[in-house]
Amino acid sequence: MTTLLEARYRTVLRLLPAYYRREREEEMVETYLWGVDRDTQDQSRPTVGEVASIAALAVRSRLGAAGAPRRYAVLGSGVRLFALSAVLLLAASAVVEPVLRLTWTFTRGSAERRLFLSDFTGHGIVTDTVAVAQWILPLGWTVAYFALLHDRRRLARTGALVAALPSLWPLIGSLAGATILTEPAFVAMLALLVWLPALALCAAHHRDAPPARLPAGTPGLVFMAACVLTGASLVLLPAATDLVWAPANCFVVGALGWLVWNVRRPDRGAPGGGLALAALGLLLLAVRVAALYPWLGVPVPAGYWNSSLGQTSALALLTVALAVAGRRELAAR
């Protein structure tokens, strides 16, 4: 006769994919019930730790764990490439934008330096600490990128989560009354842009996943190329330099390169690469649209509109092309 505790364990185990339950469910139920007095099983429940462990196992088994069916292996590969690509874009921005800002500040005289330093002093301990953290913590993206490609997964997860923290301050500050949230949709999309890659990295680069690998090039060379593209976007094409301008330009160049590479060597890429890049493109497109929306009906320079709309069109076309290429890639495999 099935006890209430056994039924509860089986309910929780339904979090696991069907292929995993077929192989391991009975063994796992026996292990959980081992040593539990049968007379007390109707008054017992799975512990919080056991439920959390099963939930983590459900994520791993769906994202390319050993022995997973092909669709789960492809899903895991795609999520890992999505996380790695997004972390690369964010890491380049986290390094280049502060360097350019510091270069501009300290080459424009003492008045500009005082104006820069005033952002970090005289506003109260909390506000000043947050301002410093918003400069320093995003460097965690660079730590996460290199740690991931050197198979230091725990360090990569820590770096990504730490780097994503500053995106929460506008939301927390508005709730606490410390700041006014003037563009909630844009702020929310920016938070999504950093937290989705961070959570994808934590979920997909689990202990059973294969080591992270770039499709081409070495980690340092690829990072340098991303930094050059980011700097060029901000210096040579400054018409629409908002927070998504440089990462989106890097994505456009990288996605075009992937499409060319995929045409020439269709069997060399990671499974699910096209769909992963399409998902990243869709995320960047959503942030770009959120950045443009507050300016509708407001007089702005024509250069801003032309640049932003051009980038929006490029993102939309590339996202569609990547999705089509990704579906063809999966069908061919």
Rank of each mutant, 00 (worst) to 15 (best):
L117S: 10
D119Q: 15
T121K: 08
G122Y: 02
H123M: 08
I125R: 15
V126N: 09
V126P: 05
T127N: 12
D128A: 06
D128S: 06
T129P: 01
V130P: 08
A131D: 07
A131S: 14
V132R: 14
A133W: 02
Q134G: 14
Q134A: 14
W135I: 11
P138Q: 05
L139G: 14
L139N: 08
L139I: 04
G140P: 01
W141C: 13
W141M: 10
V143C: 04
A144M: 10
A144H: 08
Y145L: 08
Y145H: 09
A147F: 03
A147V: 04
A147K: 06
L148H: 01
L148V: 00
H150W: 12
H150Q: 11
D151C: 03
R152N: 07
R152S: 04
R153V: 07
R153M: 03
R154E: 11
R154A: 11
L155N: 06
L155K: 09
L155I: 15
L155E: 12
R157W: 12
R157S: 08
R157L: 09
R157C: 13
T158F: 10
G159S: 01
G159R: 01
A160R: 07
A160C: 02
L161A: 11
V162S: 05
V162R: 00
V162Q: 00
A163M: 03
A164G: 11
A164S: 13
A164M: 05
L165D: 08
L165H: 09
P166L: 05
S167M: 12
S167V: 06
L168Q: 04
L168M: 09
P170S: 00
P170I: 06
L171F: 06
L171P: 02
L171D: 03
I172W: 14
G173C: 06
G173K: 01
S174L: 01
S174K: 07
A176W: 07
A176P: 07
A176G: 10
G177L: 02
G177N: 05
G177S: 03
G177P: 01
G177R: 09
A178H: 11
T179Q: 12
T179L: 12
I180V: 14
T182A: 15
T182P: 05
E183V: 11
E183C: 09
E183K: 04
A185F: 02
F186I: 02
A191C: 14
L192W: 10
L193I: 11
L193V: 14
L193E: 05
L193R: 13
L196G: 01
A198Y: 04
L199F: 14
